[in-house]
Design a protein around this nucleic acid. Structure first.
Lengths: 220, 220
DNA sequence: ATGAATAAGTAACATTTCGCAACTAATGTC
DNA sequence: GACATTAGTTGCGAAATGTTACTTATTCAT
């Protein structure tokens, strides 16, 4: 897990919570530790690099791909870490469920986690909150999907993140008004029902773009 | 800065970015280090305590008061720290500008910071982003005010956080619809103009409370 | 005192957004 | 071909929001 050049700077590890959406549930990537137990990927903090740079390198080592969106999570020092690190600085990344998963790693649902070390379990469970915090301001939902996706898929991801069902027509109207997605000329037939048009994330420059006051979510 | 019981766990410091709003600008609390230079309050991470617990204790030591709202910031390992800590875990707290400031500490505007160590300067400059990230979901603006405040004061804090002017009537209607503030029977005369009624933050149980899709802020 | 200046607070109206239901369209299954 | 299933659209009433204008209460200058 720890490359030869790494030093145990500060006894802090960078822990990765890589997320994808499968079957309407949030999943995180789990690997096997040297002792065979399931762990979130982690690495000792490396001098001379940004924490996020280190996290992205680790992610690339594990998945073989760059991570389309990533944000820092909530640093945690309490509870037991698999490598006994004093402090974990988590990074929460998202990727498409269609990205091939390397052997030795597995996607597990966050609401049915295996026997992770307590700290890593808490980090994984905190990932959804981090995603929710950023989803209004960053293309989190879009990055949980492959480059081409259907609007139903996008809506399902939003429903997963928000934890509630959405209305189809309202969802599409709002999306269109924001000029965030562009239709491609491709269609996908999922078996039953009418084929769906594929869209691409392509934010166009918008006028206005001023955020308004939002009282409705304060205090639960 | 570092109490006798503290150990340099992990070479990580907890750095405090205490914020208040004064004259329409965001201010942070700066203290004098042993060598006389201005620094953000910090402490070496303490074993057996939650990071936030440690941060709250430090804040109480510095200000003499509890902090009405606090959130973890973005952990940073790059740039120079005043104590050469390998890693900073910042906490961003807010308090009323009316809270008496202890001697030896001073409020400075974030857009006119003194010669802080580069890392702490970056932490202070990142505070506004952290506040913005949470303001829709937590009573950040209310906690930047004293328990009793006028609606104009509240609006000014929102304008500071959002970075733009708001319309008075819309602001008040939205606030009323959210059942977040309760009028007191007190009024305050600020010198010129009609006296303003004082309000108190008192979130009442609301029906619904379901958050909606928000595309309008994605991708700047 | 009277009235200008200033700031708080309200009312009314146009515009936009949103929730909802009903509808059309394209595909697979029996 | 009838039917189930999923995608996508349309129209309407309700609710939220932006804007302008107005009223109320106070200080300050004359």
């Amino acid at each position: 897990m720890s490359s030869p050049k790494s030093r145990r700077r500060g006894g802090a590890t960078i822990d990765l919570v890589l997320c994808s959406a499968r079957a309407g549930r949030l999943h995180v990537l789990v690997v096997k530790s040297a002792s065979g137990k399931p762990v979130l990927p982690f690495v000792w903090s490396v001098d001379g690099e940004t924490l996020e740079e280190t996290a992205r390198e680790l992610a690339k080592d594990i998945t073989g791909h760059g991570i389309p969106w990533m944000a820092p999570g909530v640093a945690t020092a309490s509870k037991k870490h698999p490598a006994e690190s004093a402090l974990s600085v988590p990074f929460v990344g998202v990727m498409s469920a269609t990205t091939p998963t390397a052997s030795g790693s597995a996607w597990v649902a966050v609401d049915a986690l295996p026997a992770l070390a307590p700290r890593q379990k808490a980090l994984a469970e905190g990932a959804l909150e981090t995603l929710r915090l950023h989803m209004d301001v960053a293309p989190v939902a879009f990055r949980l999907l492959p480059p081409a996706f259907t609007l139903s898929e996008l809506q399902q991801v939003y429903e997963l993140l928000l934890g509630r069902r959405l209305h189809k027509a309202s969802f599409r109207r709002a999306l269109q008004a924001a000029y965030l997605a562009e239709p491609t000329d491709e269609w996908r037939s999922e078996g039953r029902g009418r084929p769906a048009q594929l869209f691409r994330y392509s934010p166009r420059k918008r006028r206005g773009g001023h955020r308004s006051v939002r009282f409705d979510l304060i205090g639960r």
